[in-house]
């Protein structure tokens, strides 16, 4: 299928979906029948003074909770074992991979020559 046709179709679909979701949101917001009180928007911290930074969700928490729950174990393995940022860890990992690849390729070539 022509790439341009695919792109046009998908773009139109995306815009339509986005527009319908946005108009639904506008409609619901208009007709929800709740009277806003100003005090509801003031953060309440049991008498403590809170900054905006403290009451808003940090970038680490935002959307991350899903990933951290589903892939937390994998993430910890990655952080603690594979991507530590320590050069010695990289070197040992790199050497293991390199030795395996060199041995496999040389073995294959020898099999090709003598087999």
């Amino acid at each position: 299928m022509n790439v341009l046709i695919v792109m046009i179709k998908l773009t139109v679909i995306m815009i339509l979906v986005a527009l319908s979701l946005y108009s639904t949101y506008i409609y619901v917001r208009k007709h929800r029948g709740i009277i806003k009180a100003k005090y509801k928007f003031q953060p309440y911290g049991c008498g403590e003074e809170l900054t905006r930074e403290q009451v808003s969700v940090g970038s680490r928490g935002l959307y991350w909770s899903v990933v951290s729950k589903v892939f937390n174990k994998l993430y910890m393995i990655l952080r603690e074992k594979i991507h530590t940022g320590v050069l010695g860890d990289w070197f040992s990992l790199m050497i293991i991979f390199l030795v395996v690849i060199v041995i496999v390729l040389i073995a294959l070539s020898l099999i090709g020559v003598f087999g």
Partner: peptide
């Protein structure tokens, strides 16, 4: 035929270096 062995080792090492 043994050139292939050298080719294999060279390919593995060169591509590994480029992967860095």
């Amino acid at each position: 035929p043994m050139i292939a062995v050298g080719g294999a080792a060279a390919l593995a090492l060169a591509l590994w270096a480029f992967s860095v």
